[in-house]
Design a protein around this nucleic acid. Structure first.
Length: 599
RNA sequence: GGGGUCGUAGUUCAGAUGGUUAGAACGCUGGCCUGUCACGCCAGAGGUCGCGGGUUCGAGCCCCGUCGGCCCCGCCA
């Protein structure tokens, strides 16, 4: 093993071109591959930036050539040599440095490496468990390294834009208090306050509102948030938000600002010019046309309502659904009448898995007739009416969902996505943004027997709806807005309540008692009494945004050290048991791990 | 809490209906090779088939349990 002493790296492995011919250079990095021809040895040297071919030849330096025989994958080396043009016809157009090579006359082996647990070239994808255990090897792969660097660029572009718009970045506490509403908290016991716990923030919501009361006017923060809920491809227990809050603004100001921000980020990092303003949908429109509040607008297959036609048809499941207050929605899957019986059975199972009782379908045959288990129940007029409403033509297949609104929307909304996936209707490299506005402020929670906030309890109601707060809380619309990208919610926010009496009324509608409100949110309520300005904001899911921009399917690929679905870190083995002494200091009793403690 | 799927060599995978000694490719080790770039050629090593139990004359394959990765519902953003 050799020392780095006396050697200075002069270039990285992507920077050498024909402009550097005949220069003496020093490169340092990892051995990606060695092609040993006996008399001549090629090494692909990789560093953070790229790959450069190094040649070891006896006529350049016999000892160095001899030493290069011993190189193996992932050895860390430094080479000193001369940049030369590759012989005619030996260029490699696949790498940026493919026109040149470095003829090494000095080789230092700075470290050796065990044989990697999985190959670092990206032809075969190792299992995720292995990648996470050896994350440092996984991150060496150019794709993953690229993701991490790209994420940094996105964050920098965000900061650059906001710094230029009079925003101030402020850090808020990680050790905060647990509040009701929202997700389950991660708790941290307090040694100095026996029996008391901090909570890790689900978001800096209350702090950023307090900053507005403080008069900061424009705040942002790229901040870690924690939610102790079950994981998904796009959900980690800790995730990052670009969190923003502004004073003296309304919805329009925020939407315009965010469109500028996103456009700047896309332009700076991907070179893509986005078209603004982004399309907007109300929550109602989104639900009725796409069956979800986060519509993927990259393709059609929109939902249509045929409740009034189906109500009178002889199809008993339709009639029953309508009679019990439900709806009948339909999708026209254009040109998909070729779906096989097996495929239709699978789609039916898919629908049942989402709560549907079944999945009715109608194929429009070439002669215009209906092929369907339920065809016989419809009159000619009803068929006509349905075809007209759905724009149906020969070769189409229609799917129906008849149920309570929530179920019918969900089933057809998901079916729409599933059909799009199966038929390849989800183009890569297309970025369809949609604002969704006019969310309901409250929804009734059957389990708790009370209304709960759809967004959070500090969201302002629409002024024209506020009169309904006591009479019909479920119908009030809020001043909340979500930003959706390709069917993924990447941002959400609202105009907040800044007047004490309004906040009081909302708490009351949420069945939060005055005592409880004072106990849990007293500091905010009091702050509202000291000249709180009108304010509102928005938070972006940074991981999700970067994931979509990078064309990945899970946020784990854009997080350096993510956790598994069981919220474990395979690299560090966190979470882990702690000593009884540690527990005692925190006034916690051991013994809750019933399996291992034998009850 | 629930549903689905996967687990076989270092890696990615193949192993119909249960049947002799569990295979391939890449990687690894040794040898040869002066224009390769997924170098080539020759030889070789490498397996508790996730783990435990059961059925059977016989289990990688069947059954039960369990552990782990992933996807999804609920939950949550």
């Amino acid at each position: 093993m050799d020392s780095i002493d006396g050697l200075k790296r002069t270039h990285n492995c992507s920077s050498l071109t024909e402009a550097s011919l005949d220069q003496e250079v020093v490169l340092m990095g990892w051995v990606l591959r060695r092609r040993d021809h006996g008399g001549l040895i090629f090494v692909d040297l990789r560093d953070k930036r790229g790959v450069t071919q190094v040649v070891f030849a006896p006529e350049v330096d016999a000892k160095t050539h001899e030493k290069a025989h011993g190189l193996r994958s992932e050895y860390v080396i430094a080479v000193k040599g001369k940049v030369r043009r590759r012989p005619e016809g030996m260029e490699n157009p696949k790498i940026t440095t493919g026109m040149i090579e470095v003829a090494a006359h000095e080789l230092r082996i700075l470290n050796t490496s065990k044989t990697p647990p999985f190959p670092l070239d990206e032809d075969v994808e190792p299992s995720e468990a292995l990648r996470l255990k050896y994350r440092y090897m996984d991150l060496r792969r150019p794709g993953m390294m690229g993701n991490i660097i790209f994420r940094h660029k996105v964050a920098q572009a965000m900061r650059q834009y906001l710094n230029g718009h009079d925003f101030t970045e402020v850090e808020t506490p990680m050790l905060t208090r647990s509040t009701p509403e929202g997700a389950r908290d991660y708790l941290v016991p307090s040694r100095l306050n026996p029996g008391c716990f901090y909570a890790l923030p689900q978001s800096p919501q209350l702090y950023k509102q307090i900053l507005m009361v403080a008069g900061l006017e424009r705040y942002y923060q790229i901040v870690r948030c924690f939610r102790d809920e079950d994981l998904r491809a796009d959900r980690q227990p800790e995730f990052s938000q670009l969190d923003m809050e502004l004073s003296f603004i309304d919805e329009e100001d925020i939407i315009v600002l965010v469109e500028g921000l996103i456009s700047h980020v896309f332009s700076e990092t991907l070179g893509i010019k986005l078209k603004t303003p982004f399309p907007r949908l109300t929550y109602m429109e989104a639900m009725e046309r796409f069956g979800t509040d986060r519509p993927d607008t990259r393709f059609g297959l929109e939902l249509r309502d045929i409740t009034n036609i189906a109500a009178k048809s002889g199809v008993s499941v339709f009639e029953r659904a309508v009679a019990s207050g439900g709806v009948v929605k339909a999708i026209n899957a254009k040109g998909m009448a070729g779906l096989s019986r097996k495929e239709l059975d699978d789609l039916t199972e898919f629908a049942k898995g989402l709560g549907a009782k079944g999945l009715a379908w109608v194929k429009i045959k070439e002669d215009g007739s209906w092929q369907s288990p339920i065809a016989k129940f419809f009159s000619e007029d009803e068929r006509q009416a349905i075809e007209t409403r759905l724009g149906a033509a020969a070769g189409d297949i229609l799917f129906f969902g008849a149920d309570q609104k929530a179920v019918a929307y969900k089933v057809l909304g998901e079916l729409r996505l599933e059909l799009a996936r199966q038929k390849g209707l989800l183009p890569k490299g297309v970025f369809n943004f949609t604002w969704v506005t006019d969310f309901p402020l409250l929804e009734y929670d059957k389990d708790q027997g009370r209304f709960v906030a759809v967004h959070h309890p500090f969201t302002a109601p629409k002024p024209e709806d506020i009169g309904l707060l006591e009479s019909d809380p479920g119908s009030i619309r809020s001043r909340a807005y979500d930003l959706v990208l390709n069917g993924v919610e990447i941002g959400g926010g609202s105009i907040r309540i800044h007047q004490y009496p309004v906040q009081q009324r909302i708490f009351k509608a949420l069945s939060i008692t005055e005592d409880e409100a004072r106990d849990k949110f007293g500091f905010l309520l009091e702050a509202l009494l000291f000249g709180a300005p009108p304010h509102g904001g928005l938070a972006f899911g940074l991981d999700r945004l970067v994931m979509l921009m990078a064309g990945r399917e899970t946020i784990r690929d854009v997080i350096a050290f993510p956790k598994t679905q069981k919220a474990q870190c395979l690299l560090t083995q966190a979470p882990a048991e702690v000593s009884v002494t540690q527990l005692a200091e925190l006034y916690l009793k051991p013994g809750w791990n019933l399996d291992k403690q034998g009850g």
